[in-house]
Amino acid sequence: MVEATVHATFDVYRFEPGTDATPRYDRYVLDLPPHTPVLSALLKIRAEIDPSLSLRYSCRSAICGSCAMQINSKSRLACEAPIGPELARDGRIVIEPMRNQPVLRDLVVDQDPFWQNYRKIEPHLILDPRHPMPEGRENPMTPAQVDRFKETPRCIACAACYSACPAVEADPAFPGPMALAKLYRFVVDPRDTARQDRLVRIQTDGLWLCLRCHLCTEACPKDVRPSERIRDLKEMAIAAQGATEPGSRHALAFKENIRDRGPLNEMKLARQSMGLTELVAQLPQGIRIWRKKPELLRAPHAIEGDDEVEKIYDALDDHRSSEDLP
């Protein structure tokens, strides 16, 4: 089979900390069929042009999670990204290491912090010795219970979500989308006996630092949808413990605010989300906002048809209560 090839230009990030003063981009031009995966192209570059190019890879079938990298600024698996669409859109293919993880060399990043975050959520069944597992046979689990894991068992720990996440970049206390999706997997496991503890603990261990931007869900090559599972965890945490944290109080206040009048009342929101001490601590920030955009801090008028908003909420509440949390 002879296939048409395309002229493919790769600009590949090269950097060896400690040796190179600054990163550089090496350009490689190859003629390849358009459906060639980026990984195959990089391996061809290694085999035929430059064996010193360093990257992680193994299975080449999107199951080992080794080859996540930035391809034209998107974090994805190189093995399942064909070059054709990239070239058609951007004219060239820029290959860079994943974000939020220090570069060790070229496209290889230090994943230790990523794995530490995964370890922190205690990713194993926590058992209660008073309820031993059935001897000699499996725990019963219905297909409906298996469905509650959603797509989390598909996670291959590639860290594409971690790379795409602005909360990880902003705050090292945020465990990252993968770790939280993994936490969800243990929280909904009927064999695990620490559901309540896990939910209470994560309220103060970074759950509410998620920015709800859904970039993790967009980046995930296995459709794990971490942001949706984080949303579930938030709901479960509030159900388990109540709105005890600024994050959870903020979420509830946000909801009530909108329900009440339509637009947000920033002053009220701040009051409801934060305790008095936090409110005082935030005062300088409030003053800065007031100087620049005083209208933000004014109580908004109710919008026209605000009763319709309330009806939407009522309908949502009815729907939600009829559908149990995972």
């Binding site: 000699g136 499996e138 689990m141 219905t142 297909p143």
Partner: peptide, 20 residues
């Protein structure tokens, strides 16, 4: 016994309607 042990370790297997 090996499969049961892996189930006890936390493996998420597909299940029949009866939970097995």
């Amino acid at each position: 016994p090996t499969v049961v042990e892996m189930e006890h370790f936390g493996t998420i297997f597909n299940r029949g309607e009866d939970g097995s």
